Computed example of a mutant assay.
Amino acid sequence: MLTKYLYIAGCIPFIALGILHTVYTIADIYNPKRLIPYKSEIMGLMKESILAITKETNMWRAWVGFNISHGVGMLFFSVTYLYLSIFYMSFLQSSLFFMSAAPIISLTYLVLSKKYWFSIPAIGSAIGLLCFVAGILVQLYV
Rank of each mutant, 00 (worst) to 15 (best):
S85M: 04
I120P: 08
I136Q: 08
W117C: 09
L110C: 09
S94L: 02
L96K: 13
V72R: 00
W117R: 09
L75P: 04
V79R: 03
R61K: 07
I120K: 10
A101F: 14
S90G: 08
A62P: 02
S113L: 06
A102Q: 08
M74A: 14
G71H: 02
G71Y: 01
L129M: 09
T108A: 13
I136R: 06
Y83V: 14
W117Q: 13
S113G: 15
Y81F: 15
K114S: 09
I127C: 09
T54V: 07
L107N: 01
C131H: 04
W117S: 12
S90P: 07
M59A: 15
M74Y: 06
E56F: 07
V64I: 15
K115D: 10
P103Y: 05
V111Q: 05
I127K: 02
K115F: 14
S106Y: 05
V111L: 14
V64Y: 03
L137N: 10
F66R: 06
V138N: 10
L84N: 01
F76C: 12
T108G: 15
A134F: 11
A122Q: 11
T108M: 11
S95F: 03
F132E: 04
V133D: 03
F97H: 09
I86Q: 00
L96V: 11
V64W: 02
V138G: 04
T57E: 12
L96Q: 10
L96E: 12
A101H: 05
G124E: 02
G71D: 02
S78F: 03
A101I: 14
I104V: 14
I104F: 14
N67P: 02
A122R: 06
T57K: 08
F87R: 11
V133L: 15
L96F: 12
N58F: 06
W117I: 15
Q93H: 04
A134C: 13
L130S: 14
I127T: 07
W60V: 01
G73P: 03
F77W: 08
L84Y: 02
L112H: 12
L137R: 06
A62L: 13
V138S: 12
A101G: 00
W60T: 00
W117V: 13
G124L: 09
V111A: 14
A101E: 05
A134Y: 07
L82K: 07
L82A: 12
I68P: 01
F87V: 04
S113H: 05
F66V: 06
I136K: 05
F97S: 12
